[in-house]
Write a protein that binds this DNA or RNA. Structure first.
Length: 238
DNA sequence: AACCAGGACGTGA
DNA sequence: TCACGTCATGGT
């Protein structure tokens, strides 16, 4: 039985890297995670995904940028980035994209500011929770385990924070990932951890690749996997 | 007018 | 563990 499992593990998942290269050649670098300053700075230049910071993998460079990314990961849960960005801009106008300041804002005002993202009752609470956590970190990199203890931070958000705010090699899985690879009849696994491991075991341990791959999956899914039937005219099928 | 969005949580099998 | 209902606003 044990041997049988080992045989299964040796199954060829080379397509995982192939798909990455294919998507990269289709769409190019996505430059996630988007930061407000760079969005407005680059919006007109690229136009495609809204700019971001293509090929600059040193970002984020400041605590404030890290914190902004973390707020974004919560705000964009089950919501379009467009809505999340609007909420972030409001928070910036209120000058509370700093954990200490955000904590002083009364919950009622915070709810109103982020209303457009939906789930504002719980997300406003989550934003305060992650802010306390961020302050307690005092600049240190959080463990995945500790992140998951924070209310509002699940598997995907934890990995997003680690990968994009802290440049840790944690592959981010989302519903699009499941949808695309299932539709292509390549992977049937739905368990988050198992899927995550599958990707990580078949890719070089490389932060920029992890960052780009997840962003590319989202970009690809927006084009071919938003409305049913999924995958119509998906170029990956050719 | 349904359906989905860069999910997470609480509950009950 | 796993499936399911719930949270809520905005766009197509």
């Amino acid at each position: 039985m044990k041997n049988f499992c080992n045989v299964l593990k040796k199954k060829n998942y080379a397509f995982i890297y192939d798909v990455y290269e294919r998507l990269y050649s289709l769409y190019g670098p996505q430059g996630w995670w988007p930061l407000l300053d760079l969005i407005t700075e680059n919006r007109d230049k690229t136009g495609v995904t809204g700019g971001y910071h293509p090929l600059d993998y040193d970002l984020p460079e400041t605590l404030e940028q890290q914190y902004e990314i973390i707020l974004g990961t919560i705000l964009t849960q089950n919501t379009t980035w467009t809505s999340a960005e609007k909420a972030l801009i409001k928070l910036k106008q209120m000058d509370i994209i700093q954990p200490q300041k955000l904590l002083t804002i009364e919950i009622k005002k915070l709810k109103e500011a982020i209303r457009c993202v939906g789930f504002h009752n719980q997300k406003s609470y989550y934003l305060k929770e992650i802010s306390r956590f961020f302050i307690a970190l005092d600049g240190k990199i959080p463990s995945r385990q500790d992140l998951l203890k924070v209310k509002g931070v699940g598997n995907e958000t934890a990995d997003s924070i680690l990968l994009y705010a802290y440049k840790q090699p944690e592959f981010v899985v989302d519903n699009y990932t499941r949808r695309i690879f299932h539709n292509l009849n390549l992977i049937n696994e739905i368990n988050y951890i198992k899927l995550k491991n599958l990707f990580e075991q078949n890719l070089p341990i490389d932060v920029p690749i992890y960052q780009e791959y997840h962003a590319l999956i989202v970009e690809h899914a927006k084009r071919y996997y938003q409305k049913k039937p999924y995958g119509v005219d998906d170029p990956l099928k050719e």
